Amino acid sequence: MYLYDIVLGIIFFQTGVGVLGNSLFLFLWFHFILFRSHRSRPLDPILVHLTVTNTIVLLSQGCPLAIIYLRKGYSLGNVGCKIVFYLQRVSRGLSICTTCLLSMFQAITISPSNSSLAKLKARILKLIIPSCLLCWIFNMIIEINVPIYVTGSRGSNGSYTGGIDLIYCYRKQIFKEVTFLPSLRDILFVGGMVWASGYLICLLCRHHQRVQHLHSTSLSPRTSPEIRITQTILLLVGIFVCAYCISCGFTLYKVYVTHSNDWVMVVAMFTSLCFPAISPFLMVHRDTQMFRSCCAPWQRPSLHF
């Protein structure tokens, strides 16, 4: 039980740091675009959408567990459970879809002019915002059945049997047909991430081999912005896929092992919150153009004699 409380405390800290990091990224981005008079870059709408999605994931999953940690007992009730768990499922699907779109659009953006993907370059700017809107509509529709099988905790409704205890809520036993579309969505979009990441890695390797002979070993040329954002996206996708696989493993263990304890769900939620908590700091750290532009007013001017 002591370890259980420690993990809850870590999730409480993780949620606060993650919300702060996503807020920081949004603040720096708006400052970069509005106050520094920079034009929005092609993938900026997806990055902003991913940041908003990360914030919803952190608040919907981390806040209920944080309240349990502070109050040592908590019940959302039937209506609260339906709303919170619906937000969790929709935001989780949005995170998967948005990360996949980010990797695939970047693969199209930096694809060579003689590739088959080059034909989509001219249309990509017009497809970004509609794609984000479609992600919302798509995930809200396929998760519409969540309020039907989620109810109050088992502690207040002891008559429920054959379901899954979600610590602060309770999920009734569901049929395979109910989870088919969400599972198919996860497989398709995670597969899209893996394909796009593999394609980006191949492009980076070709680029490295092409420019290697242009620079002497004594020089250390700067990485171009396109290569840097590609490396950032690969890091984001790698973190997401690792956290997603570990979280799914713990969740499946909770579903199929009848006598598993609450700590399994707590660890699964902690793992699923790693990506939304880490990604904003990674994006701020890797986006040197935005960071330097926003920090320029606070830098001390150099003196020349």
Score class of each variant (00 low, 15 high):
residue 15 T to E: 08
residue 201 I to G: 04
residue 225 P to G: 04
residue 206 R to L: 05
residue 129 I to A: 14
residue 72 K to C: 14
residue 43 L to G: 10
residue 102 L to V: 02
residue 244 Y to F: 14
residue 140 M to H: 11
residue 113 S to C: 09
residue 51 T to W: 10
residue 245 C to M: 14
residue 60 S to C: 07
residue 136 W to L: 15
residue 92 R to F: 15
residue 135 C to N: 10
residue 280 P to C: 07
residue 5 D to G: 14
residue 55 T to F: 14
residue 46 I to W: 04
residue 45 P to I: 08
residue 7 V to H: 09
residue 203 L to N: 00
residue 48 V to W: 12
residue 183 S to W: 08
residue 251 T to E: 08
residue 103 S to F: 03
residue 112 P to F: 01
residue 296 A to E: 06
residue 43 L to W: 06
residue 27 F to G: 08
residue 223 T to N: 03
residue 109 T to D: 14
residue 106 Q to D: 04
residue 265 M to Y: 01
residue 298 W to C: 05
residue 67 I to E: 07
residue 288 T to N: 01
residue 22 N to E: 12
residue 146 V to H: 01
residue 118 A to I: 00
residue 81 C to E: 00
residue 200 L to V: 06
residue 288 T to H: 02
residue 147 P to G: 04
residue 171 R to N: 10
residue 105 F to M: 01
residue 11 I to S: 09
residue 142 I to N: 03
residue 250 F to M: 02
residue 22 N to Q: 12
residue 285 H to A: 15
residue 132 C to F: 11
residue 186 D to K: 13
residue 65 L to W: 04
residue 295 C to P: 04
residue 32 F to Y: 05
residue 216 S to A: 14
residue 296 A to I: 05
residue 208 H to K: 13
residue 174 I to Y: 05
residue 294 C to V: 10
residue 150 V to R: 06
residue 40 S to A: 12
residue 241 V to Q: 12
residue 72 K to H: 15
residue 23 S to C: 15
residue 152 G to E: 13
residue 134 L to C: 09
residue 142 I to V: 14
residue 241 V to D: 15
residue 80 G to K: 00
residue 112 P to I: 00
residue 251 T to S: 08
residue 198 G to C: 15
residue 269 M to A: 12
residue 54 N to L: 07
residue 21 G to S: 15
residue 214 L to C: 05
residue 160 Y to P: 01
residue 85 F to R: 04
residue 42 P to S: 13
residue 170 Y to M: 08
residue 23 S to I: 15
residue 209 Q to A: 06
residue 9 G to L: 12
residue 71 R to H: 10
residue 304 H to L: 07
residue 224 S to C: 05
residue 266 V to G: 03
residue 97 C to G: 12
residue 118 A to D: 01
residue 54 N to Q: 09
residue 62 G to V: 08
residue 48 V to G: 13
residue 211 V to M: 00
residue 20 L to S: 13
residue 39 R to A: 05
residue 130 P to L: 04
residue 115 S to Y: 01
residue 126 K to F: 15
residue 247 S to L: 11
residue 265 M to G: 00
residue 253 Y to A: 15
residue 220 S to L: 14
residue 110 I to Y: 01
residue 98 T to P: 08
residue 201 I to E: 06
residue 259 H to W: 11
residue 242 C to P: 10
residue 104 M to D: 03
residue 292 R to W: 02
residue 37 S to K: 06
residue 149 Y to W: 07
residue 46 I to N: 03
residue 235 L to I: 12
residue 78 N to W: 01
residue 87 L to R: 01
residue 253 Y to F: 15
residue 124 I to A: 09
residue 90 V to I: 00
residue 6 I to A: 13
residue 71 R to I: 11
residue 119 K to L: 07
residue 227 I to D: 04
residue 243 A to G: 09
residue 151 T to V: 03
residue 83 I to D: 05
residue 237 V to L: 07
residue 265 M to F: 00
residue 209 Q to R: 04
residue 76 L to Q: 05
residue 234 L to Y: 04
residue 244 Y to N: 13
residue 186 D to C: 14
residue 12 F to G: 12
residue 186 D to N: 13
residue 128 I to P: 00
residue 146 V to N: 02
residue 27 F to I: 13
residue 290 M to C: 02
residue 257 V to W: 12
residue 140 M to G: 09
residue 177 E to S: 03
residue 199 Y to L: 04
residue 61 Q to V: 15
residue 175 F to N: 10
residue 138 F to W: 14
residue 59 L to R: 09
residue 243 A to Y: 05
residue 79 V to M: 03
residue 53 T to G: 14
residue 141 I to V: 08
residue 208 H to G: 09
residue 251 T to D: 09
residue 36 R to W: 01
residue 228 R to W: 00
